[in-house]
């Protein structure tokens, strides 16, 4: 088939529905310590569907709260703005794509893998002194280029998925062979289209090439979290495989057997509940 041109991809991404208006405010708050949290809360409260989903996640055992929160303001007080912000972003992106019907693309397996990467990234962040809420969002969103490809280029992406199964190769390679592009590049372009902060963009666009990113980016963390999720087979996909773990990323994070022994149970034990909570 003909490879996808840059223009086709950019044009296709522009056809995707815009994120809710309030998410623009949420995104701009990443680089602004003086963001008006009260304004964001009031805007979210006007979106009943988003508020309901946010409260469902906030009250799930994922956050382990001792008491229920009934409003977004309470959620911010109890969980902190950073956690609520990450939650809003991941919930909005997952619902922006609507129902997937690309042959060979399994939305449930996709979500279980991404939430698993989010949990692993959060656990690694806590172990290595990074921001766990940002790491969780980066982990959940790291493969959003796959969602975009499956939504916009349904037929071509189905071919790439079939090619991957036929040749038992990493998805990234199958995408490049069939489409001439991959979910990393498309995810990066989508992050640009939606004005994502640089930290999250690096998690999405750099998770397969973390050594090219700076040491303080999320790319290292999400790269290793991705390997953990594939290594545990969280998606339940028979064709799942771990790509080689980048040496630089591994060294920078300084993980060892003791740290991994603390991280792995948190990923597996939290997966079912978190996947359910974050599913649309």
């Amino acid at each position: 088939m003909n490879k996808l041109s840059h223009e086709e991809i950019v044009h296709g991404l522009r056809q995707l529905p815009a994120l809710p208006t309030v998410i623009s405010e949420v995104l701009s708050s990443f680089g602004n310590d003086e963001a008006d949290i009260g304004l964001i809360c009031r805007q979210v409260a006007r979106d009943q569907s988003l508020t309901a989903r946010l409260l469902r996640v906030a009250n799930s055992s994922f956050y382990g709260l001792q008491c229920r929160v009934a409003t977004i303001n309470e959620a911010v007080v109890v969980l902190g703005f950073r956690a609520v912000r990450s939650m809003l972003l991941t919930l909005s992106v997952s619902s922006a794509f609507g129902k997937q019907d690309c042959p060979g693309f399994e939305p449930r397996a996709y979500m279980r893998h991404c939430v698993g990467v989010g949990l692993a990234a959060r656990a690694i962040a806590e172990t290595t002194g990074r921001n766990p809420d940002l790491a969780f969002a980066g982990g959940v969103l790291h493969d959003m280029g796959q969602l975009a490809l499956a939504s916009i280029f349904r037929g071509a992406y189905a071919q790439a998925l079939a090619y991957r199964r036929e040749h038992d190769i990493p998805l990234l390679i199958a995408e490049q062979d069939i489409l001439g592009t991959d979910h990393v590049l498309v995810g990066g372009l989508l992050a640009d289209t939606w004005n994502f902060p640089a930290s999250l963009r690096s998690a999405i666009a750099g998770h397969h090439t973390p050594s090219a990113a700076t040491a303080d980016s999320l790319a290292d963390l999400v790269h290793v979290a991705d390997a953990i999720a594939h290594g545990l087979g969280l998606a339940g996909d028979d064709y799942d495989l771990v790509m080689p773990v980048d040496f630089t990323a591994w060294q920078r994070l300084g993980l060892d057997q003791d740290k991994l022994a603390r991280i792995l149970p948190r990923v597996v034990d939290g997966l079912d509940e978190a996947s359910q909570a974050f599913s649309a």
Binding site: I228, G231, G233, D240, P244, W250, Q257
Partner: peptide, 24 residues
């Protein structure tokens, strides 16, 4: 576990992660 790591190579990170997942 070996099936999931069939293409992970023998780099230090891949081997350490495989060992950790196997033990877990």
């Amino acid at each position: 576990v070996a099936v999931y790591f069939r293409q992970a190579g023998d780099g230090v990170g891949s081997l350490a992660l495989q060992e950790a997942i196997l033990t877990f």
